[in-house]
Design a protein around this nucleic acid. Structure first.
Lengths: 327, 327
DNA sequence: CTGAAAGCGCTTACAG
DNA sequence: CTGAAAGCGCTTACAG
């Protein structure tokens, strides 16, 4: 195991340290036999290169920060999981930066990442990292944003078509026979939340029933409580995300309303959790794809400077929380 | 911001680089005026020490790996969150290692952490990292284990008194008038799961009704389904953890049984999520404390070699998922 | 294609 | 108490 250095390999292979370095990092710059020899010796000795020394010298590391506001919201937990895997597959080491919605903490992380020579940074929505903060710490032109709406001219992004998602939810409920369809917003990225709400308002038009447009974790419960107060009560609810949907369902149950018998509820996110817990009908975002694409975008920009904005299409996942309206 | 080095500070302060280093890391080894001068200059220049260079030279870093099996289970997500904060407060940088229950991946992480000069490693339960793997990668005597039962002679641990937790659940249900109390195990650390099940079996004695003892995410649903098949049906269920409890509740609902009207359900973990979603009655583990204590134990052992095993006491959190048995 | 040298940003014995 | 030197494990122009 440990503490075998590049010089050990060099000595054992009878070549200079610099040759070992080349054989490992730029194989085409070395004679094929030499390379094979070096590789074999390195293998035998169980040589593992020091990422520390490498980063220090070359001023480039494999540490990729993922900035998220928290991990309590399972959306971020799932994003972090898939991104860890995606990063690992591509030779990066993901470093999770949990800001706790505190911009000072975010700044501290960015400083640290800067001194770790992170090649780029990936920012999840609602992480309270603004462009000027990014710029201030030298990541202004090396950032990729996930799930944010505005197409920044220098920051690539990967998002989901929220409008399309809400539309899918709407169509699903309509096709089941629902006419009065309410909306509850709840926790999520600011942009994301607004986009979904806007899409709902537009689709529902004059029949909009926004039960709660809050951004906190209790929005679901409030929305469900609100349902009882509304005259001509909605028979279905679209929730801004899965966690909110669970909150709605739970509160409805406490109020003696059954899902989907009395009220249908549809979520948004498509978390693994959602498929287990109550089997939620929801709009699935391709979270794993988002992670991979985010890294793609960062690498692509580093190579040719291109700033792409990828918009993914969500899909309807029919679970057990929706059905036709009560007779 | 970036790229101001120790030499820049030294020059600006009119001292040697080594003096700057001392002023920063061993303040008592430097004259007080010198130290103040250096500190002020460093501040003015916005100097941030390179953790890379420091680690490389001193063969000790601030990177602390937390090895978890996944982040999908909110218990780990919450543990990761609180540990990130705890580590940050103490000058460490937590590096999340998600094994996905794959021991090869765990090994890869340990190799990486070894070359990052991680001072110690914290292992969460069920992470499939066995002692010999730890030893193999040089962390054999620099590991702390969370939530594992066996008191290893060289590995400090912090766990929760699972037996006491189950007892609290039992007492709560008994005091509500329940006599037939079933148990569903579900996902969790192997040791933890067994300990809780054993505690249940012991407490229930001849009246044990183990509805499901599986370890996967579907145990809750199976357990609930099983409930109907049992003659003289239990009026209450203890779930091995919160996620399982949600699974139970969801499946019961699908079968037309109401919680807590028809059946009471109590969870185990006390996740933030549990207080929001259905407001679950549950046994709360002091997760934040566990994180802090884990770091304490690692540091303490490094200093004086002591191997402590801390056992924390859980507490009952009464929510809305338990009530008296149906008349 | 390969070797020798310099240097990334630090720390730490060793002198003084 | 402070400075000068060596070195942590690498990479990368620069010669040859």
């Amino acid at each position: 195991m440990a503490d075998v250095t590049i010089d050990d390999v060099a000595k054992a292979a009878g070549v200079h340290r610099s040759t070992v370095s080349r054989a490992l990092s730029r194989p085409e710059a070395v004679k094929v036999e030499t390379r094979e020899l070096v590789l074999r010796v390195a293998e035998e000795l169980g040589y593992a290169m020091s990422p520390l020394a490498q980063a220090l010298r070359s001023k480039a590391s494999i540490f990729v920060p993922l900035v998220v506001p928290d991990l309590i919201n399972p959306f971020y937990a799932e994003l972090a999981t898939t991104m860890t895997l995606a990063a690992g597959d591509r030779g990066y080491q993901l470093v999770l930066c949990i800001t706790n919605r505190d911009s000072e903490r975010a700044a501290a992380y960015l400083t640290a990442m800067q001194s770790l020579y992170a090649p780029f940074v990936i920012v999840a929505p609602s992480s309270r990292v603004e462009m000027d903060t990014l710029t201030q710490f030298g990541f202004g032109d090396r950032a990729v944003v996930i799930d944010r709406v505005d197409e920044h001219p220098t920051v690539p992004s990967v998002t989901v078509d929220n409008r399309r998602g809400v539309e899918l939810a709407f169509d699903h409920l309509r096709s089941l026979g629902h006419r009065r369809i309410g909306y509850v917003s709840g926790i999520s990225g600011i942009h994301t939340a607004r986009e979904r709400l806007d899409a709902y308002s537009e689709l529902a038009g004059a029949e909009s029933i926004v039960l709660d447009s809050g951004a906190d974790a209790d929005a679901g419960a409030r929305g469900a409580a609100q349902l009882l107060a509304v005259t001509d009560r909605p028979t279905a609810i679209i929730a801004g995300n899965d966690m909110t949907a669970f909150g709605v369902i739970s509160k409805l149950a406490a109020q003696g309303l059954r899902v989907p018998t009395d009220v249908s509820v549809i979520g948004f996110d498509g978390l693994v959790l959602s498929a287990r817990n109550p089997v939620l009908t929801t709009i699935r975002q391709p979270i794993a794809d988002m992670g991979n694409i985010a890294i793609d975008l960062a690498e692509k920009k580093a190579v040719d400077g291109s700033v792409d904005h990828v918009v993914l299409t969500p899909e309807l996942l029919v679970g057990a929380s929706t059905a036709g309206p009560p007779a």
